[in-house]
C-alpha cells in the first residue's frame, strides 16, 4: 500500500458517497446517468468475485463490500426509489456499444484464460468507459449541478492517483500491471475535458457547470 493508492481509494469512496448522499437527500436523480451507475455496479461485481476465493487484507475486503453495497444502493435509488425523477430520455447512451467491445477484448487480451481472470479483465476495461454515459448525458443536457461535478472530479482523480500508484510500485517493487495501466490512462484521458471545465468553471464559483 502507498499514499497514492490510499488517497485514490479515499477519493473513490468520497465520490461514491457524494453521489449517494446527493440522490438520497435531494430525493432526486435528475441529471444522473443510471446507465453509468449500472455499469459501475457491474464493474465491482465482476472485479470483486475474489471476495469469496482469496483474502488479501481487512482493508481490501471491507472496501470491496462498501463499494458493492453503495453501488447497488445507488442503482436502487435511481431505478426504483426515485425512478420518477430519472431522466431516461437524456440518458440515451447505447451501452451495448461499450459492453460488446469490452467483453470481446477481455477474451482476447488477458493474463490468463480463466473465468475469474477474464471477469477481472472485463471489469478493468469496462471501468475505463463506464463514465461515458454520464459525460454524454452532461453534453446532451448542456449542464451539470455542481454536486455532480464534484462527484466526477473525485471519480476522475481516483484513477489519476492510481496512475501515480503504478509509477511508484514500478519503481519500488517492479510491479507493472499492463492491462490496468493502459485502461487507467484511457479512463483518465476521458476526464481531461471535464477537468478543464471543472477548474475553469465550477471552482470559479459559477456553481452550475454549463457547457459552452
Amino acid at each position: 500500500m502507498n499514499i497514492f493508492r490510499l488517497l485514490g481509494d479515499m477519493c473513490h469512496l468520497v465520490a461514491i458517497i457524494i453521489l449517494f448522499l446527493k440522490i438520497w437527500r435531494s430525493k432526486s436523480c435528475a441529471g444522473i446517468s443510471g446507465k453509468s451507475q449500472v455499469l459501475f455496479a457491474l464493474v465491482f461485481t465482476t472485479r470483486y468475485l475474489d471476495l469469496f476465493t482469496s483474502f488479501i487484507s481487512v482493508y481490501n475486503t471491507v472496501m470491496k463490500v462498501v463499494f458493492l453495497v453503495l453501488a447497488y444502493a445507488t442503482v436502487y435509488l435511481i431505478y426504483l426509489r426515485f425512478r420518477s425523477t430519472y431522466n431516461s430520455e437524456s440518458d440515451s447512451f447505447r451501452v451495448e456499444f461499450l459492453l460488446v467491445p469490452v467483453a470481446g477484448l477481455s477474451f482476447l487480451e488477458n493474463y490468463a484464460f480463466a473465468p475469474l481472470e477474464i471477469l477481472w479483465t472485463f471489469s478493468i476495461y469496462l471501468e475505463s468507459v463506464a463514465i461515458l454515459p454520464q459525460l454524454f448525458m452532461i453534453t446532451k443536457t448542456g449542464e451539470a449541478e455542481s454536486i455532480t461535478t464534484h462527484y466526477l472530479f473525485f471519480l476522475g482523480l481516483y484513477r489519476a492517483l492510481y496512475l501515480a500508484n503504478w509509477v511508484w510500485r514500478y519503481h519500488t517493487e517492479g510491479f507493472f500491471d499492463q492491462i490496468a495501466v493502459v485502461s487507467g490512462v484511457v479512463q483518465t484521458i476521458f476526464y481531461c475535458d471535464f477537468f478543464y471545465l471543472y477548474f475553469t468553471k465550477v471552482l470559479r464559483g459559477s456553481g452550475k457547470m454549463t457547457l459552452p
Binding site: 475474489d50 481490501n60 472496501m63 493474463y111 500508484n165 510491479f175 500491471d177
Partner: peptide, 10 residues
Amino acid sequence: MIGQTSHDEL
C-alpha cells in the same frame, strides 16, 4: 511482473 493473476488492488 506482467501477467500476475492475483490482484491486490481495488
